[in-house]
Structure formats: C-alpha cells, structure tokens
C-alpha cells in the first residue's frame, strides 16, 4: 500500500485517493497486458521444447536450455536471412533518410519555384495509389523483382517523414540560412553544413521509423521475392513458420508428431520453440533501441501530426 501511495502522489480529498489508486492499479494491469506475451515467449524460448508441450510455462522456463537459440543460430538459411534483414535495414534507412531530408530541405525553402508543385505531388500520393496489382506489374516491368533493390527503391521517400522533416526545417530560424548565404554558401553547403546538423533530433526520429519499417517488413519479400531464398528476411522466415503452425493447428496436432519422430535425441526442437526463439531474436534489437529515442519520436510525431 505504501508503494501505491508513493506512485499516486500527493492528494487532498478521499475522492482523489480513490481515483488515483484505481488509476495506478489500472496502469499496472495495462503494463502486464503489454508485457506478458513477450515475457511468456521468452520463457518458452528458454525452455526445453519437449517440456514446453506439457504446458504450464508462464513467466519463467521450467527446464532451462539455450538449445532453441543454438538451433536457430545454427541454421545457415536463417543466418543468411538475418544478414539480408540487417542489410536492408542499414542501407534502406541510410539512403531513404538522406533522400527524404534533401527533398524536405528544398520544399522548406520559401523562394523555391517548384515548392508548391513538389509538395502537392508528394502529398497527393498519400490518398491516391495505384494499388497492389499495377504496382506489381510496374516492378516486373522495371526488372526489380528478384533483386535486393526492391527493398530499397520503391519505398525511398515516405510522405509522412518528408512532412515531418520539412516542418522541422521550417521551424529553424531564417537568419542562420541568410547569413550563410551572405557568406557565399550555396544550397548544397547550406543543406549539408547547416540543415542536416540542426536536424539531428528529427533525423533520429525518422531513422527510427524507417529502420523499424524495414526491419519489420515481410510483405515485399512475400510478394516479390518468395521464389528467391537467398533474398529472404528474418520476418519472412518467421511468417512462414507461423503460417505452418497455424495450418497444423487446424489440421490436427502436427507439432507433437514432429517431436516424436526425433524422440531418440536428447534435445529436440518444435515449431513452437523455434517460433518463440525467432520472435525474441527479431524483437530484441527494436526493444533495446526505441526507449532511448522516445523523447525524439514523441516530438517528431507531434510535429508531423499537427502540421501534416
């Protein structure tokens, strides 16, 4: 109770006490709901696969093992997919953020002749899009299907990110750019030497959005590159495992059959344990990064939301 009181803070009337206590209890409940699925998955991932089938794994593993992770890391296909995931995240984010920032800089310049035209051309695409099939045919026409570049080029500039960066640059004091101009700085110099360094908070936000989007993407792999195992990503591999176990769920219990077949070996894996281990592997990088950028993305989102 002391603890609850401390969280609830100072109050005056009895009404306030009730309100604050209920609120704090609700928030704790909310946190449990948000965290439990992940914690449970971690426990399953660290538990022996055959033991998991017995059920009853909640917050911590019953029979601890690293074997599920070892198994995932031991599969060369999954390792390769991990490399592609990292590559598309790193390259995709760097290229996309740079290009987005550059266009955002140009449409933030009041004197730019095409300011209106470029802005409207981009914003319109938020509401108008050709849809899946025409886009697919275009990719085929451009021979992007079956290449790594289909992960980078079609999504090069996101309109929302463009607006967020533009709003940020427009909020910078004009005098900085004017004095640079008087000193003879061209547009490129102003962009690289002034706009980019000052934009670091918003660049951090947009980078997070783009990187998370790249890392989590599976649909483009599924649509364009499912015939190319060498271009598969971790999320797509996880998606395939999920689809398989969903299918087995509706057509009898294939999961247990699989383990029985390998029964003689001391350590086995099941689709469930592999899925848990992979879920942890693909989620941990993001979970480790986003809390540190919280200050930035809250600001970035608000800026884009209000002005966009």
């Amino acid at each position: 109770m002391k603890f609850l009181q401390k969280l609830a803070g100072k109050r005056r009337g009895i009404d306030d006490l009730v309100f604050d206590s209920v609120n704090v209890v609700f928030m704790i409940f909310l946190c449990i709901v948000m965290l439990y699925p992940m914690v449970n998955t971690l426990a399953v991932a660290l538990n022996e696969a055959t033991d998991t089938i017995r059920g009853g794994i909640y917050l911590w593993p019953r029979s601890f093992t690293w074997y599920n992770f070892e198994h995932v890391f031991g599969e060369s296909q999954l390792m390769h997919a991990g490399m592609i995931s990292v590559l598309r995240t790193v390259i995709g984010t760097a290229v996309s953020v740079f290009c987005t920032a550059m266009v955002a800089y140009t449409i933030s310049r009041k004197e730019f002749v095409l300011k209106k035209f470029v802005t409207i051309a981009f914003v319109l695409t938020m509401y108008l899009n050709g849809g899946l099939i025409p886009t697919y045919l275009l990719m085929r026409e451009l021979s992007l299907i079956g290449t790594f570049w289909i992960y980078i080029i079609p999504g090069l500039i996101g309109v929302f990110n463009l607006i967020v960066i533009r709003s940020f640059i427009e909020g910078l004091p004009d005098t900085i750019f004017e004095s640079a101009k008087i000193d003879g700085a061209g547009e490129f110099t102003q962009f690289f030497k002034i706009a980019l360094p000052l934009c670091i908070p918003v660049i951090a936000t947009v980078s997070l959005f783009v990187a998370v989007g790249q890392w989590n993407q599976w649909f483009d792999v599924f649509i364009y590159n499912s015939h190319k195992p060498e271009l598969s990503t971790l999320q797509y591999e996880l998606m395939k495992i999920l689809q398989n176990s969903n299918a087995s769920m509706t057509s009898g219990n294939a999961a247990s059959a699989f383990t029985q077949a390998q029964g003689g070996v001391t350590e086995t894996v099941t689709p469930q344990s592999i899925r848990a281990a992979m879920t942890i592997i693909v989620s941990v990088p993001i979970i480790c990064v986003y809390p540190f950028l919280q200050k930035y993305f809250v600001k970035g989102l608000t800026l884009g939301g209000v002005k966009g």
Partner: peptide, 29 residues
Amino acid sequence: EQKALLLMSLPFVIWLFIFRYVPLYGWTM
C-alpha cells in the same frame, strides 16, 4: 538561379512519378 534546389529535388520527383503515379495508369487494366 535555383539550379541547385532543382538538382536536389527533381530526381526524386521523377522517382515519385515512376513509382507512385505510373501505377495509376495501370487502372486502365
């Protein structure tokens, strides 16, 4: 006068037309 600004944005406008507006033409399908 604004060659630099044009150079910085036009390549991406071309990208935009190819990847976002050309598919609209596919509506004829």
